[in-house]
Structures are given as structure tokens and as C-alpha cells.
Design a protein around this nucleic acid. Sequence first.
DNA 1: CCAATCCATAAGTGTATACTTATATGTTGG
DNA 2: CCAACATATAAGTATACACTTATGGATTGG
Lengths: 110, 110
Amino acid sequence: MESQPAVIETEIFRALADPTRRAVLERLGKGEQTVTELRTGFAVSQPAISQHLAALRRAGLVCERRAGRHVYYRADPAGIAPLIGWIERYQSFWRDRLERLKDVLQEMDE
Amino acid sequence: MESQPAVIETEIFRALADPTRRAVLERLGKGEQTVTELRTGFAVSQPAISQHLAALRRAGLVCERRAGRHVYYRADPAGIAPLIGWIERYQSFWRDRLERLKDVLQEMDE
DNA sequence: CCAATCCATAAGTGTATACTTATATGTTGG
DNA sequence: CCAACATATAAGTATACACTTATGGATTGG
């Protein structure tokens, strides 16, 4: 199967390049939250949060669950796989550390 | 030792968000090269290469060795450590969450 | 020497980004 | 049903970015 043209890596790196977006993602790693819930703790408007979520979604880092007028977002743990893949391809210096990381990811896959 | 304020992660993600910059870094991972050597294979000007190298340098991803009028750049393997650290920390949220879930299930069994 | 080479920086430009406010769409409670 | 709510999108703006050409500083070969 043809691997995605590396554009997805660009989307991921771009998404993670913004501190607010990383903070949003880390919050979503702790559990799903609605846009309004996410808004608390960030000094930006609701549209800004929605736009950050759209960027994270394009990068495959989050997914959502719709329930009436609420939309629950959560981190997609598989989303950073291309990122790990890139690092792996980048250099072999880190092979052993990556092995340990992959073990962790493997455990989570079950 | 005081851990770097997460600004370095931003620098790294920003540096890697550009495809040309990633390609430059991957070339440098294979061995040191001068700016002029790097220029071959990229459809951008010499200043553009220098600017990309400056960005990679700010992110700690490359370092240089000066020899006369030549400047040899090479990838710094330690540079992506904060990136791996971020991934591990980010993923640990999920690990913890799974642990808590297992605890809950355990309690329900009893 | 000094002209050519190597590289970095300056300055300018078009586009992208991160935000804002305003508004549109859809959903629920009363 | 409708007013309030939850979210997304539109439109505008200020800043950042990736590039260009022009130029400056440093070094070397001939």
C-alpha cells in the first residue's frame, strides 16, 4: 500500500507547532471535552478553539462524537503514528528509545 | 537542572513543519554538508537554505563546524530529544487513563 | 593582492496563520 | 414553538513565514 504523501506529516507538525493547540490536545488526552468545556482555561474565544480543533482534526490528532448540540472531542492516539514513523525514519541514533516508545504504543493498541 | 520552558518544543515543531526544512535535515542526517552542497537538489536560493539552517539551528536540530569560508552543517541527534520527550509525556496521559480504567474494572469485578 | 567564493543578513513581497467579532446552523428546555 | 445554548463558519486584521534579490563580511586561490 502506498504510504501517504508526506503531507500528513506537515499537517501534524504544523498542528503541534502552536502552543495553545498542544495544550488543547493534552487536555483532550485526559478525556473527551466539548468545545465550551475546552474554552475554560484558555484566554481565547470560542471560534478560536473551534479553529484549533479543526486544525487538529485535519492532522488526524483528534476525533469527535456528536451528541445533540454538543460535540465531544477526544485525542486520537493513533494520530501521532506518522510522527513516530517520521522520527524512526529520520535517524537510527534513537532506535532503542523508539523501541521503548513503540512498546508503549503496542500495549495501547490491544 | 531546570527543565526548558516548553518553548523549545514549539521551535522544534515549527522547524519541522516545513517540508523543505525536513528534507534538509534528513540530508544532514546522512552526513555533514556545506550550504552550497545542500543547495543542490533544492529549488530555492542560497539565502533560503541559510534561513532554513538558521531555523533548524534555533530548534537545536543542527549544529555547524566552521572551516575557513566553509560552514559544515550536520544534524544534532540530541536535538529531537525534546520531541520524543513530548510524545512520551503526551502518550502517558493515555497510559494513565488505561491504568485507571483497569482499576475501575477491577473494582467492579470485586 | 584581489577577484572569486562562501555564507549570512537586510529589505521587500505575497501568502498563511491566529486571532477577533459577527453571523449562520442546528438543538434542546420550558 | 421559541428563546437560549452549542458550535461552526465568514470576514477582517495584524503578525509571522518563506521566499526573493541585493549586499556585506570573511576567506582563499592564483
